[in-house]
Simulated assay, not measured.
Amino acid sequence: EPAKLSDGWAMAVFSVPESERSYRYQLRTRLSWLGFGNIAPGVWLAPGRLLGDARDMLVRLGLSDYVHLFAADYAAFSELPETVSSWWDFPAIEEQYAGFTQAYGPLAAQLTEQRDIDGAEAFRAYVPMLTQWRRLPYLDPGLPAELLPADWNAVAARQIFQQLNEVLAAPGLRHVQEVTGLSEEPPGSGAV
């Protein structure tokens, strides 16, 4: 789900002494996983809604002493859509979405025609599809739609995921329950 431009930005500014440079690598890695883009050395930016997640992550990992977090607005001096594309690697993100679409688009098209889906077949398709999909939200910062390329391919990939999730999840779960003998009811919720 794209962020709203009106929500502003989360900005992380950090400085790590050379003697502790492993923290610098850890900060870069974690901020990028969270969806931050690198706008200058030690300066990272993300949609404003990620501010709380960034704060929690930095405290949890003991990295908060090295970072200043800001809630920010973009004020002036360049066209934001062009500038933003230099802060995030759009081609790499689009390549991942394209790979998902190529891998699972034909299956989504096929399953719209199919009425009854075998549980084992659903499970076999669902697990690798979900595994591949789960990486994508970490690569995609969820930037406001106005800042994305007009042909941003995340939209098509998201539709394929939602369609396959809707069609495969329930029969796949039933298959797992049949094989394992486990139900989806939490322990202790059954009648005595």
Score class of each variant (00 low, 15 high):
3 A>G: 09
7 D>T: 08
10 A>L: 03
15 S>W: 01
17 P>F: 03
24 R>Q: 15
27 L>Y: 14
28 R>Q: 13
29 T>E: 11
34 L>K: 05
38 N>A: 05
40 A>K: 12
42 G>L: 11
43 V>P: 02
47 P>M: 11
48 G>A: 08
48 G>C: 04
50 L>A: 05
52 G>H: 12
62 G>I: 11
62 G>D: 12
62 G>F: 10
63 L>C: 09
67 V>K: 06
72 A>W: 00
73 D>I: 01
73 D>F: 01
73 D>C: 03
79 E>C: 13
81 P>K: 09
81 P>I: 05
90 F>W: 15
92 A>K: 15
93 I>N: 05
93 I>E: 05
93 I>S: 04
95 E>I: 02
97 Y>Q: 07
106 P>Y: 00
110 Q>W: 05
111 L>W: 06
115 R>V: 07
116 D>P: 00
117 I>E: 01
120 A>M: 10
123 F>V: 00
123 F>W: 15
125 A>E: 08
127 V>M: 10
128 P>V: 03
129 M>N: 01
133 W>F: 13
136 L>V: 10
138 Y>W: 12
138 Y>D: 12
141 P>H: 14
143 L>S: 12
143 L>R: 10
152 W>E: 13
152 W>F: 15
159 Q>F: 09
161 F>Y: 15
162 Q>F: 02
165 N>L: 07
168 L>M: 02
169 A>D: 03
173 L>A: 06
177 Q>F: 07
178 E>V: 04
180 T>Y: 00
186 P>N: 04
189 S>M: 13
189 S>V: 12
191 A>H: 10
